[in-house]
Amino acid sequence: MASPVGIVLISHSRALAEGAAEVATAMGLGEVAVRPAGGDDDGRLGTSLALLERAVDEAQTGAGVVLIADVGSSVLLARTYVADLPEDALGPVLLADAPLVEGAVAAASASATGADVETVAAAAADAYAHRKL
């Protein structure tokens, strides 16, 4: 099997991104690269293009990376990043329209099955439909 699709979790909080990544990594059976990009460059609440770029570089194997963002500027930063992705990037990067934690769990689970990047992004988006009650 080719390397699984990577996942990057973008949050205003470093702790939130790292915690969600911890859960999703377990759901990916440890085979899927799930990287956090949380907080600003100094670890305070905020977002950081530099952290996002580094996380994508770490998660990218060529099979693609799915981004999942929490709210507000996380989404805007991710959209800006995807729009700027160079033509010669190592692999595709898709922003999933998905909730952060549930989307990360769904994406990591799908990625561990060897799904392609579009399927992993769709699995993350489908997390909206999984009711809890």
Partner: peptide, 15 residues
């Protein structure tokens, strides 16, 4: 602006 601002105004004004 996109690189330096860790809030929504960075991507928005940067764009």
């Amino acid at each position: 602006l996109i690189s330096a601002v860790g809030g929504a105004s960075g991507p928005l004004y940067g764009t």
